[in-house]
Amino acid sequence: KKYKIKVYVKDKKTKKWKKIKEIEVDTKEEALEAIKKLPPNYEVKIVP
């Protein structure tokens, strides 16, 4: 079972969220580790 991490950042001009990358991992633990490495201003969604 794979997890997709969708990473969004808020556009300063439009104030809208835009997706900047998608990370695919195998476990939820890996997903949480990957999220920890991202800057705090990123919004993250984990999709099972």
Rank of each mutant, 00 (worst) to 15 (best):
K1L: 14
K1W: 11
K1E: 10
K1F: 15
Y3P: 00
Y3N: 01
K4T: 14
K4D: 01
I5R: 00
I5A: 01
K6I: 15
K6E: 14
K6H: 15
K6L: 15
V7C: 08
V7Q: 00
Y8N: 00
V9H: 07
K10A: 05
K10N: 04
K10G: 03
D11W: 02
D11E: 05
K12T: 09
K12A: 07
K12H: 14
K12C: 06
K13D: 08
K13T: 13
T14M: 07
T14I: 03
K15P: 02
K15Y: 03
K15H: 14
K16I: 06
K16Q: 07
K16D: 03
W17D: 00
W17H: 03
K18F: 06
K18M: 09
K18Y: 07
K19V: 14
K19D: 01
K19C: 09
K19L: 12
I20V: 14
I20Q: 03
I20H: 05
K21D: 13
K21R: 12
K21Y: 14
K21V: 08
K21Q: 11
E22C: 02
E22I: 06
E22R: 00
E22F: 03
E22G: 01
I23A: 02
I23G: 01
E24T: 14
E24K: 06
V25K: 03
V25T: 08
V25H: 03
D26H: 12
D26M: 07
D26Y: 08
T27L: 02
T27C: 02
T27G: 06
K28R: 11
K28G: 04
K28F: 15
K28Q: 14
K28V: 11
E29H: 10
E29S: 10
E30D: 10
E30I: 04
E30C: 03
E30F: 03
E30L: 08
E30Y: 02
E30P: 00
A31P: 00
A31W: 04
A31I: 14
L32D: 11
L32K: 10
L32N: 08
E33I: 08
E33S: 09
E33L: 09
E33R: 07
A34Q: 13
A34R: 09
I35V: 12
I35Y: 03
K37Y: 06
K37S: 13
L38M: 14
P39E: 05
P39I: 04
P39C: 03
P39H: 07
P40S: 10
P40H: 11
P40C: 05
N41Q: 11
Y42W: 12
Y42E: 04
E43N: 15
E43M: 14
V44H: 09
K45M: 10
K45P: 01
K45V: 09
K45E: 07
I46M: 09
I46H: 02
I46E: 01
V47Q: 07
V47S: 08
V47P: 02
V47R: 07
V47L: 08
V47F: 10
P48Q: 14
